[in-house]
Design a binder for these strands. Structure first.
Length: 805
RNA sequence: GCCGCUGUGGCGGAAUUGGCAGACGCAGAGGACUUAAAAUCCUCCGGUAGCAAUACUGUAUCGGUUCAAGUCCGAUCAGCGGCACCA
């Protein structure tokens, strides 16, 4: 057995593909297209992670298979290059982030090419390229013009020492990742995008797409639609206090109210509140917590009663106390709730702690022990005109009543919040707006796009929390496009999500100077037929890009409501210790070394063979050796005796291998479509074992085997294909299977007695049921004597089960 | 606390979706080749009992449905990931 020289073979074919532009694709309107997409990477300083090749190889296999099936395949690649790590590296090392990005991209490109992905490199894009972000800015302007971008006061993480706004990621246990100082929540005016306006459509159109159920569920839960009612309580201060509830039926059971610490009434009622200072203290304390900390279930409920103002329940005119507590969030509903401790777990806990009355309004539970929250079985009690009704009926009745009395109205709420689109950072797309004293916020003319990111001395945000751009007078000061007067530019930049929300459109027409892509090309290539990415992007990137696509559909840029027909997700590659790979754990694997020691084909094969594609899988050095061993066996196929019959037709496999070949072709073809790469490879391994067992091979067998393996291991198969005189593999078609030839003439039948295997029997495929049963009984012989047969089950071509007493 | 996912040999994982559990690979043991080693090839490889044929047992735990359960249902335990107490 000889090892093959993977280094020179892989280099040879990578050069060949590059020189011949093998995978460059052009719009061919006569040919059926197939658009395969992988999430473009963030080019970090660490280089390609060993996890990256897993999804890239999987989709490369699909792309190569589709080409062999005759499709016009678009499989593009690019760089999602704006972002914090690059900026932080630039700050630390005083290198321009554009330079850092260019270096990282160069390294990533070298590594990606060494793995032999069949990307169309002529369509490479980079979100930090002004020719690209010109169109990111253009889309933002359209959103702005349609009223979908607005400014809002938002709480941000503020490092008290660095005096900068921090991303959630930079806050570790409530303190700054860099200086470990305290981080507080501070209010800042931010650009927001009204994704909530698309909430219902983002739910509804999920029925049109082929996503894994867990992805759909995550998105639906994230958007979090709930139906209920808004109800107006009056306060003893004379104002109306509006609340949202999903359980209007329990209105008679409301024994107190809770408002969020940020609720504006706290200030409005300042004069009436005898314990105002105590309330203010509570408000300050809760400002230090994140929403997550505030809403943690395990934590003890906290709160302060408002002394001096009460609320009045509109259905029974009862006066009830008002509390302020941080478990109520200003960002959901109206920032105020009615508390029904008898039928809400959180309210129940709060009421127990503060000794508040608990009234049962739905019978069926024991409210002394816990809140009774079941909506299906209870009957209304202690609820005036609702008594005796089911919960569902009561909901309808009370909502009608409230509407009629003008005390409230039905309401649908979504958990989904609008998208915070501003960053007080340098390394992002500048927001192309100016602020004019007279005209307000004004879009810059589209002819002035791209609004270039200017050079700055330091990338550090300013100590007022503004972006580094705020320190550049030349950049800030401009004229108003509307009135011509003096105006100031927006200095915030866009989040990294912006560029990735539409990149799949740019791949269709990456050099277009007059549009983000031409309508003709968009209509040819879109939709993305198959999009693979990580589960971690399910609720942010995937939702954001669907939102932008729907907006572009609304303004006539794209022709479909949804961008992606099919979405799949891969599992992470873990370290050999089953832990997430990280520098601190010391379990990081460098792909360069793997390629050097085993070759790209072995790396590709191993990452596909290691386990279920959708689940996490650990790296294993011995595992990759096994894959390399398999490739050596493939290489040595050509050293077997060739028993050539001179034919290259499908039916020229030798008789003893014919059925195996057809079965393997069927299995590999099926498995690739269903992300079962591991079992596809296993079946190829079984087939090669069978070939070796015969000690020989013929041309048709070698040719089919190489074609089947090619999507997984493109270099070695191209080389062997050429050496065998079959031509260039990439220009061929995938072998086909014949269903009739996949079947064996005979099958083994399991004979069970009471579910236990007692005999085995070989019968012709498709053998008659009674015939099988007779032969099964013969096989069992005396074992059935003196037993009463209760039941006889025959599963054709599989098993016989005889139940006896 | 809530949501989602996952529990199968020494290890990674298969199992046509209810029909012989452990495919394929790794590791291990024995043998062949070799002066020797590596590589390669052949054989064995869940547990218990047995020289063996074989029998019993076995898919996190407990229970259920079924002729038949890794697979379906109910409860429990453990691990991983996500989270915005969503009223």
């Amino acid at each position: 057995m000889k090892e093959y020289n993977y280094t020179s073979i892989e280099k040879k074919w990578q050069d060949y593909w590059e020189k011949n532009e093998t995978f460059k694709v052009v719009e061919n309107f006569d040919k059926e297209k197939f658009y395969v997409l992988v999430e473009f990477p963030y080019p970090s300083g660490q280089g390609l992670h060993i996890g990256h090749p897993r999804p890239y190889t999987a989709m490369d296999i699909l792309a190569r298979k589709r080409r062999l099936e005759g499709y016009n395949v678009l499989y593009p690649f690019g760089w999602d290059a704006f972002g914090l790590p690059t900026e932080n590296f630039a700050i630390k090392n005083k290198i321009h982030p554009a330079k850092v990005t260019a270096d990282n991209v160069k390294n990533f490109t070298r590594q990606a090419k060494a793995i032999g992905f069949s990307f169309d490199w002529s369509r490479e894009i980079n979100t930090t390229d002004p020719e690209y972000y010109k169109w990111t800015q253009w889309i933002f302007l359209q959103l702005f013009k349609k009223g979908l971008a607005y400014k809002k006061e938002m709480a941000v993480n503020w490092c008290t020492d660095c005096k900068v706004v921090l991303a959630n990621e930079e806050v570790v246990d409530g303190s700054c990742e860099r200086c470990h100082s305290e981080v507080v929540r501070r209010v800042k005016s931010q650009w927001m995008l009204k994704i909530t306006e698309y909430a219902q459509r983002l739910i509804d159109d999920l029925t049109e797409v082929d996503y894994p159920e867990r992805v759909k569920t995550s998105q639906i839960n994230w958007i979090g639609r709930s139906t209920g009612a808004e109800v107006d309580f009056t306060s003893t201060a004379g104002d109306i206090l509006r609340i949202f509830t999903t359980r209007p039926d329990t209105l008679f059971g409301a024994t107190y109210m809770v408002i969020s610490p940020e609720h504006p009434y706290i200030d409005a009622w300042k004069e009436r509140l005898s314990n105002y200072s105590e309330i203010l203290e509570y408000k300050t304390a809760s400002a230090k917590k994140s929403d997550f900390e505030r809403t943690e279930m395990v934590k003890e409920k906290t709160g302060v009663k408002l002394d001096g103002v009460c609320a009045v329940n509109p259905v029974n005119n009862t006066e009830i106390p008002i509390f302020v507590s941080d478990y109520v969030l200003m960002s959901y509903g109206t920032g105020a709730i009615m508390a029904v401790p008898g039928h809400d777990t959180r309210d129940w806990e709060f009421a127990k702690k503060f000794n508040l009355p608990i009234i049962e309004v739905v019978s069926g539970g024991d409210i002394e022990k816990e809140a009774f929250t079941d909506c299906d079985s209870g009957i209304m009690v202690n609820s005036g005109f609702l008594d005796g009704m089911s919960v569902d009926d009561a909901k309808v009745k009370i909502t009608e009543y409230l509407s009629k009395q003008k005390l409230g109205e039905p309401k649908i709420n979504y958990k989904l919040r609008d998208w915070v689109f501003s960053r007080q950072r340098y390394w992002g797309e500048p927001i192309p707006l100016v602020h004019c004293e007279k005209c307000g916020w004004v879009a810059i003319p589209e002819s002035q796009l791209p609004l270039m990111l200017p050079e700055v001395e330091t990338y550090m945000p300013t100590d007022t929390g503004e972006s580094p751009l705020a320190a550049l007078d030349d950049f800030i000061n401009t004229t108003c496009p509307e009135c011509g007067g003096a105006a100031k530019r927006e200095t915030d930049t866009m989040p990294q999500w912006a560029g990735s929300s539409w990149y799949f459109l740019r791949y269709c027409d990456p050099y277009n100077k007059t549009a983000l892509a031409s309508k003709e090309k968009l209509d040819y290539w879109m939709n993305v037929d198959w999009y693979n990415g990580g589960m971690e992007h399910t609720t942010l990137h995937l939702l954001y890009s669907r939102f932008w696509h729907k907006f572009l559909y609304d303004i006539g840029i794209v022709s479909s409501k949804e961008p992606y027909n099919k979405r799949t997700s891969h599992g992470m590659i873990l370290g050999e210790d089953m832990q997430k790979m990280s520098k601190s754990r010391g379990n990081v694997i460098n792909p360069d070394e793997i390629i050097r020691d085993y070759g790209a084909d072995a790396l590709r094969l191993y990452e596909m063979f290691v386990g279920d594609f959708e689940k996490v899988a650990p790296w294993s050095m011995t595992g990759i050796k096994g894959c390399k061993r398999f490739l050596d066996r493939v290489w040595n196929l050509c050293r077997l005796t060739t028993v050539d019959n001179g034919q290259l037709t499908v039916d020229s496999y030798r008789k003893e291998l014919c059925s195996s070949f057809h079965k393997t072709i069927k299995k590999v073809t099926y498995d690739i479509e269903h992300l079962k790469f591991n079992t596809a490879i296993a079946s190829l391994m079984s087939l090669i074992n069978e070939i070796y067992a015969t000690g020989a091979i013929n041309n048709a067998e070698l040719r089919s085997f190489l074609l089947l393996l090619n999507p997984f291991a493109p270099h070695i198969t191209e080389e062997m294909f050429e050496a065998a005189g079959f031509g260039i593999l990439n220009e061929q078609s995938l072998p086909k299977y014949d269903e009739a030839l996949c079947k064996d003439d005979e099958v083994e039948i399991v004979v069970q007695v009471c579910g236990k295997v007692r005999a085995k029997l070989v019968v012709p495929t498709g053998c008659d049921k009674t015939e099988v049963l007779t032969r099964a009984k013969e096989a069992l012989g005396a074992a059935l004597d003196s037993k009463t047969i209760v039941k006889e089950i025959v599963v054709p071509d599989k098993l016989v089960n005889i139940v006896v007493r």
